[in-house]
Write a protein that binds this DNA or RNA. Structure first.
Length: 491
RNA sequence: GCGGUCGUAGUCUAGCGGUAGGAUUUUGGCCUUCCAAGCCAACGACCCGGGUUCGAAUCCCGGCGGCCGCACCA
C-alpha cells in the first residue's frame, strides 16, 4: 500500500480531513478539515502570519472571493485559464487543441479558434488515442463562473488571492504611509475548476492559499533585513541541474536566480517549512525553466517536495514585475503609478510574490512526519512539531476514579485559561490513551496519579520517547509553554 | 474525459445467486496504581439507480466515488 493511501485512511479515521458532503457521494476535489486537521491548519496559518507578516511589520487583508470579470480580464486569467479543446467524436476523449496542433504541425498557435480548426482539417489531424474524427475546437475555462445581482453580471470565484491585493493596493498605499516598499498578505480560499482532480488534498477545486505581495521600487530592488538571512542555506535545483545543492541566500542573488527580495523570502520560506516539520532532505527550491514561467512572471522559483505521489509543488515565488498593477491601471482607467518622494518620480511598483498552498503543505507534512510502528512504539504516529500539533497537551487521570478525575478537570481548566489548547480524556487504559494521542501527534501528556493527591505534582510525558518528568502543578503551564517554544518532545 | 481496476459497519476484511461473519473502533458496566491488558453487554455495513431472476451484496447496464496509466494541472 502506498504511503498516501495510508495517510488517507488515517486522515479519515483521525479527523484530519474527509471528503465534503460525503453522505451524498462527494464531488471530487473538495475536502473538509475535521477537528484535528482544522487545528493543524490554523497552526500553520498562524505561524505564517507570525513569520511573513508580523515579524516584518507587513499588512494583512481579506478580500472578496466573488470577482467581477473585468478584474480577471485585466489579470489575464480569463484568457490564460481558458484552454482550447477538441473532443473525439468516436472515443469522446478530450485533448488540448493547441498542444495537439503545435505538436503535429510545429506551428506556434496564433490564439484564434478558427486557425486551430483550419489546421486540424488541412493537416488531417485525428484523435491521438483512437484515430477518430475530431470535433470543432471550443474553449473550457478553469475558473468557476457565477453571476452578480439580478442581471447576473459575469463573475468568477477567484483563482488566486493575489488579485484582491492588487486591486486594493492604491488605497492601502495611501492609507499606510505612501512609501515603498509595502507588503500585503492574505490567507484565503481560491477556486479552480480542475477537469479531473486527483491525489486527495494535493489537487483540490477549492483550496487555501497564503500569499504575500511585496511592492517595491524597481530602482531599489532591495530589502531591509537581507543581511540577517544572507548566509541562510537552502537546497536548490538550478536550471539544467540533476541534483539539488545547498546554497545561501547570498548565492541565489549572485547566481542571478532572483533579486535580493526574492532571495530573502526564499530563505524565510525554507525556515518556515523546516519549522512546520518538513524533511529538508526531501524538499528543494527549483528555478523554473523559461518556458515554464507563467505569463505574469519574470522569474519563478517553486518549492518542490518529494512524496509518495512523486514531486509536489507547494509554493511558487514569482517576480511579477509591474505586470498586474499596470494591467489593472489600464483596465480600470485609474492612476496606479505612485509618487516616490525619495526618488522624486512616479513609478508603477514592482512585485515579488510568495504564494503558498496550505492544503498541499498539510499533505506533505502528514507524509514526512508519519512514523511506522517500531520496537519503542507499537503503533503508527505523527512526529509533528509542538507548534503544529492539533493539541498542545492532553490531560489524563491515571484511572477513571473520582479522586483522580476532580484534580484532572481542574488542571484542564487552568491550562485552557492559560491559552493552552488542551485535550482531555478518561476513557480506556492509560496506555491506550497515550497511543491515541501519539496517533494525532500531540507532543505532551499530563497524567494525574495517586501521588498528585499527596504532593500536588503531575507527570509530563514526552511523545517521542515516552519518558516522563514530574512537575509541580503551579509550574505546569509555564513548563509546557517553555517546552513548546523550545520545540522539545523528548525528556 | 478515456482505458484498467476496485467499492461489505467509523476502519480493515470474509462471503460472490437463498436476505451477511470476524477483527478493530465507539458506548455502557465490572476490573485495573503508567504505555493499545481482561471480562460482560450494546451500537453499527452490502455506494446509488435500473434490469435479469421465484429470490441479487453476489449476474448485467448506467451513475457516483477511490486507486493506477494517458490527457489536464495557475
Amino acid at each position: 500500500m502506498e504511503l498516501h493511501e495510508r495517510i488517507f485512511e488515517l486522515a479519515l479515521n483521525r479527523s484530519f480531513f474527509i471528503p465534503s458532503n460525503e453522505i451524498y457521494g462527494s464531488a471530487s476535489g473538495f475536502y473538509d478539515y475535521g477537528p484535528a486537521g482544522c487545528q493543524i491548519k490554523h497552526n500553520l496559518e498562524n505561524a505564517w502570519r507570525r513569520m511573513f507578516l508580523v515579524e516584518d511589520g507587513f499588512l494583512e487583508v481579506e478580500s472578496s472571493i466573488v470577482t467581477p470579470e473585468i478584474v480577471l480580464k485585466a489579470s489575464g486569467h480569463v484568457d490564460e485559464f481558458t484552454d482550447p479543446v477538441v473532443s473525439c467524436k468516436k472515443c469522446n476523449s478530450k485533448v488540448r487543441a493547441d498542444h495537439l496542433v503545435e505538436d503535429k504541425v510545429k506551428i506556434k498557435w496564433d490564439g484564434k479558434l478558427e486557425t486551430l480548426n483550419a489546421l486540424i482539417s488541412d493537416n488531417g489531424i485525428t484523435c491521438p488515442s483512437c484515430g477518430g474524427e475530431l470535433s470543432e475546437a471550443y474553449v473550457t475555462n478553469l475558473m468557476f463562473s457565477t453571476g452578480i445581482g439580478a442581471d447576473h453580471a459575469r463573475a468568477y470565484l477567484r483563482p488566486e488571492t493575489a488579485q484582491g491585493i492588487f486591486t486594493a493596493f492604491p488605497r492601502i498605499f495611501r492609507n499606510h504611509g505612501t512609501k515603498l516598499p509595502l507588503a500585503v498578505g492574505q490567507i484565503g480560499r481560491s477556486f479552480r475548476n480542475e477537469i479531473s482532480p486527483r491525489k486527495g488534498i494535493v489537487r483540490m477545486r477549492e483550496f487555501t492559499q497564503m500569499e504575500l505581495e511585496y511592492f517595491f521600487s524597481p530602482i531599489k530592488a532591495e530589502i531591509e533585513g537581507f543581511e540577517a538571512v544572507a548566509q541562510k542555506k537552502m537546497r536548490f535545483l538550478k536550471r539544467g541541474a540533476a541534483e539539488p545543492e545547498w546554497m545561501t541566500a547570498q548565492q541565489v542573488v549572485e547566481e542571478g536566480i532572483g533579486n535580493q527580495i526574492m532571495a530573502y523570502f526564499l530563505a524565510k520560506e525554507w525556515e518556515y517549512y523546516v519549522l512546520a516539520g518538513l524533511d529538508q532532505e526531501r524538499m528543494w527550491f527549483r528555478h523554473l525553466e523559461e518556458n515554464e514561467t507563467p505569463h505574469y512572471s519574470e522569474s519563478n522559483v517553486d518549492l518542490e517536495v518529494l512524496t509518495s505521489y512523486g514531486v509536489v509543488e507547494i509554493s511558487g515565488n514569482a517576480y511579477r514585475t509591474n505586470y498586474d498593477l499596470s494591467r489593472h491601471g489600464q483596465f480600470s482607467g485609474k492612476e496606479i503609478e505612485v509618487f516616490l518622494q525619495e526618488e522624486g518620480k512616479k513609478v508603477v511598483p514592482h512585485v515579488v510574490e510568495v504564494s503558498m498552498g496550505v492544503d498541499r503543505l498539510i499533505f506533505c507534512l502528514l507524509e514526512h512526519t508519519f512514523r511506522e510502528k517500531s520496537g519503542e512504539k507499537e503503533w503508527e504516529w505523527f512526529d509533528f512539531p509542538p507548534a503544529v500539533a492539533p493539541y498542545e497537551v492532553a490531560v489524563f487521570p491515571l484511572m477513571k476514579k473520582d479522586e483522580l478525575k476532580a484534580p484532572a478537570e481542574s488542571i484542564v481548566l487552568t491550562l485552557r485559561e492559560n491559552g493552552i489548547n488542551t485535550y482531555y480524556s478518561a476513557i480506556g487504559s492509560i496506555g491506550k490513551r497515550y497511543a491515541r494521542l501519539d496517533e494525532i501527534g500531540v507532543p505532551y501528556a499530563v497524567t494525574i496519579d495517586y501521588q498528585t493527591i499527596e504532593d500536588n505534582t503531575v507527570t509530563i510525558r514526552f511523545r517521542n520517547d515516552g519518558k516522563q518528568k514530574r512537575v509541580k502543578i503551579p509550574e505546569l503551564a509555564e513548563k509546557l509553554k517553555k517546552y513548546k517554544k523550545e520545540g522539545r518532545f523528548t525528556l
